[in-house]
Design a protein around this nucleic acid. Sequence first.
DNA 1: TACTATTAGTTGACATAGCAACTGTTGATA
DNA 2: TATCAACAGTTGCTATGTCAACTAATAGTA
Lengths: 154, 154
Amino acid sequence: MNNNNCKKEFIPIGKYLSIAHREFNSYLKAKLKDYDIDRGELPFLIALYHKEGVSQQNLCAYYQLDKAIAVRMMKKLEDQGYVVKKRNPEDLRQYKIYLTKKGEDLRPILMGIFQEISSTMTEGMDEREQKVLVKLLKRTIKNLGHYDPDDIIL
Amino acid sequence: MNNNNCKKEFIPIGKYLSIAHREFNSYLKAKLKDYDIDRGELPFLIALYHKEGVSQQNLCAYYQLDKAIAVRMMKKLEDQGYVVKKRNPEDLRQYKIYLTKKGEDLRPILMGIFQEISSTMTEGMDEREQKVLVKLLKRTIKNLGHYDPDDIIL
DNA sequence: TACTATTAGTTGACATAGCAACTGTTGATA
DNA sequence: TATCAACAGTTGCTATGTCAACTAATAGTA
């Protein structure tokens, strides 16, 4: 289509996407090992720091995760006392998820970790390059998933 | 360190890395569903298309995967008849992995799929942007993993 | 009101991935 | 040569994530 037909090599974005994602994961995991929180719970906590009182599926949207994983992580987070689930009286199908004090206390710690990992990842990039990277990643998501990540509002 | 201390927001590279990676995975999975091959076997086949007769750990290096996953995927690939494992007579600890005819036959199909997914991902990006994306992803990997992906030679 | 479709959440089965402990082989060196 | 460290591969355990089938509640509509 948009590539000339004698070219054999493709741009290995998928490869470096996979590797970068795994490096990101294991870096994050290492940073979290001193805290009573697992890597998988993080996206939901971060989403909650962004907006509370929303449903599980709404929280999923923030990181485009499956609702099944939300169920499991929410159970974990609730058991550990970081969040509470309240039935929405106006729609008994859904819950509204809130942070507890314990969950709120974790905010500066987790934000600090994200701040740190973020600045580690971007070492040697100027501000323009960082923005370009985010822009191009969003574009990739849009191309693969047929939705615009900027349209997802929590 | 390299960010001013009143800034609250961090560059959400990790977020979009995670989402993009998952979108990439599910897109790939969908493309593979008509073929007798699973997503997890792919990186090892691709590495073999790049270079045959190397050890399992060598193959791991290409996508920076754990050797444990190599064992499992290699077993799967061998059971399905895509590869053969031969003990290296000069070092009985390691195997040398080779493609079978069946594995070789899959090459154009898988390369086609990668070609397609690659051009899907890069829709709306010019050639310069594609290169920048790869460059910045590599930089991210280098920053997180303390190794240069360009130094990994299979 | 009754029927139907949609939605939020749940569950089970399964694939992918990482970590740590292990076996057997090799290489270095005392 | 004997000992010890390093290495390739293996295994078990666990975490993460997807998919499909399911339940219960709601919304839309004949």
